[in-house]
């Protein structure tokens, strides 16, 4: 507690001689919303266009997801129990498990989890602790597939901030994990997924 009081006292003393304290500016957070290059017919259209622009893979409907899984010749992965039935229906050849074993991270080719929302403006998927389980299944496999209800696409980031709620871990995901640390060259899939999919159902 000693340091706490010292620091707060130093702050107060430091501020004491501020002749004019800057007021909190009145503003509309919409000023941070970017303009789009053209009109989009729906939030889904905008979201999909934006997600593609950050190298994400937007899909519409279970069948599209089935095609994606088959095209990639995927065999084994994790799936949130909520969706196993739907996945089995569109891609019967898959070996899916509802258990994610953290000691065997690299066995899972993909992880299918829920998304709590999405931001159309930036092509961003919103993951939460309550909806997206477990944390590692959405992070460790090379391919992460987020399942999203179409109604949960929000227009922009100020709207998404209003929906933070009381979840202890909200994560906005905008494209696959990436780095440009080595000579500025873009490489995808550093610690997180190299392929980021969002399937709207």
């Amino acid at each position: 507690m000693k340091d706490r009081d010292t620091i707060l006292k130093r702050v107060r003393d430091g501020l004491a001689e501020t002749p004019e304290r800057t007021p909190y500016p009145e503003y509309d957070p919409a000023c941070a919303v970017m303009r789009q290059p053209h009109e989009f017919s729906s939030l889904w259209e905008l979201f999909a266009w934006r997600m593609k622009s950050v190298n994400g893979v937007p899909l519409h409907g279970w069948n599209a997801l089935g095609d994606f899984l088959r095209e990639r010749a995927l065999k084994f992965g994790y799936c949130d129990p909520e969706y196993t039935e739907a996945i089995a229906a569109v891609c019967g050849s898959l070996d899916i498990t509802e258990r994610f074993d953290r000691n065997d991270l690299d066995r899972y080719e993909f992880g299918i989890t829920a998304a709590a929302g999405a931001i159309a403006e930036t092509g961003t998927i919103v993951l939460t602790d309550a909806a997206t389980r477990p944390r590692l299944a959405a992070l460790a496999p090379w391919i992460h597939i987020a399942i999203l209800q179409e109604d949960d696409i929000w227009p922009d980031s100020p709207t998404a901030l209003k929906r933070l709620g009381d979840d202890p871990s909200v994560i906005w995901v905008t494209g696959p994990s990436k780095t440009a640390d080595v000579e500025g060259i873009l490489i995808e899939g550093v610690h997180g997924p190299g392929v980021q999919v969002c399937c709207v159902v």
């Binding site: 309550a130 477990p134 933070l164 994560i171 906005w172």
Partner: peptide
């Protein structure tokens, strides 16, 4: 020069009671 950084995390405490990781 990104519109948003790939991962933006809002941390409001230790993990959710229903979470296994974290």
């Amino acid at each position: 020069a990104q519109c948003l950084t790939v991962y933006t995390q809002f941390i409001g405490g230790p993990r959710h009671r229903t979470q296994r990781d974290g």
